[in-house]
Design a protein around this nucleic acid. Structure first.
Ligand SMILES: [Zn+2]
Ligand SMILES: [Zn+2]
Ligand SMILES: [Zn+2]
Ligand SMILES: [Zn+2]
Lengths: 140, 140
DNA sequence: CTCACTTTGAGACTGAGTCTCACTTTCATA
DNA sequence: TATGAAAGTGAGACTCAGTCTCAAAGTGAG
């Protein structure tokens, strides 16, 4: 966590006690998680962090590129740590909800071509493919 | 509108008076619109359609592929008619909100490769590139 | 007609996320 | 160590897009 501490300090983000406790849990989650899930986990561990702080901190971390935020049409956001990970996009199963990650350099570079064509400066992008995953296809 | 009538009938969707009035307005919008915007327009024209019916009908039309629904991180959805249009994806300006459409066959076919690789059956996809549009870059 | 089925509207309700504001913590400077 | 401005926090009120309820109205086959 010392590394993270440094990363955040560099960005001018104070690592308060609440934020440290939140990060400890958030970074352990090896998959996508929601604000409410995280809040509930922290509440049960008596971590002493309010719902407001959970939402505020997740937003802050996302703004500083420590977390990615995803909207998979569930009515709430899912978060995912970016630390030590490559950019990737997602396949979302409409039946079981399973999320599969993929990386495709050709798509990434085509995007840049598109942006160049429109004189558009890319800041981020979101590419989601919805459908049926391997397991869910079988029954169809 | 006779064509649309046929399209809907075929899908088992009754074209009631309210739905017809909603479609009349929705299909005239040549750009992306929100449910509230549409409701407000209809209300001002005294079209006699409730908010509940607007939301219900938009959902119904989206389910039958008459409309596309987009989430551009505004906290509400935008809709767009699919009738007589090609599939396209979007560039979204973070500063002025402008939405630009693009079509890129290479990205589309790479997506299919990705899906094939994961034995995933694509139903739909959403590809959004966020950043600064041509006009907004100038000031930066 | 008639009866079952569908659609509609007014307004209550939901739920993720934000805001307020009094209180606490942090930290630079004295 | 003292001090005060600035930043962070918690409880709970609030927002607001979207959904639900249920009584009333429309539709349509027989
Ligand atoms: Zn990507
Ligand atoms: Zn991911
Ligand atoms: Zn596409
Ligand atoms: Zn579009």
């Amino acid at each position: 966590m010392g590394e993270l501490d440094a990363v955040l300090k560099e960005k001018g983000v104070k690592l308060t006690e609440q934020r440290r406790r939140l990060l400890e849990k958030a970074l352990l989650q090896h998959k996508h998680f929601s604000a409410e899930e995280l809040y509930e986990t922290l509440r049960q561990k008596r971590a002493g962090i309010s719902r407001a702080t959970v939402y505020r901190t997740l937003k802050l971390l996302a703004a500083h590129d420590v977390l990615d935020v995803h909207d998979f049409d569930r009515g709430y956001h899912l978060y995912e740590s970016r630390l030590g990970r490559h950019h990737h996009d997602h396949l979302v199963c409409l039946k079981c909800g399973r999320i599969t990650e993929f990386e495709n350099p050709d798509i990434e570079s085509e995007q840049e071509k598109v942006a160049r064509h429109y004189h558009f400066k890319i800041v981020s992008h979101s590419h989601k493919i919805y459908g049926l995953c391997h397991r869910c296809r079988v029954g169809n």
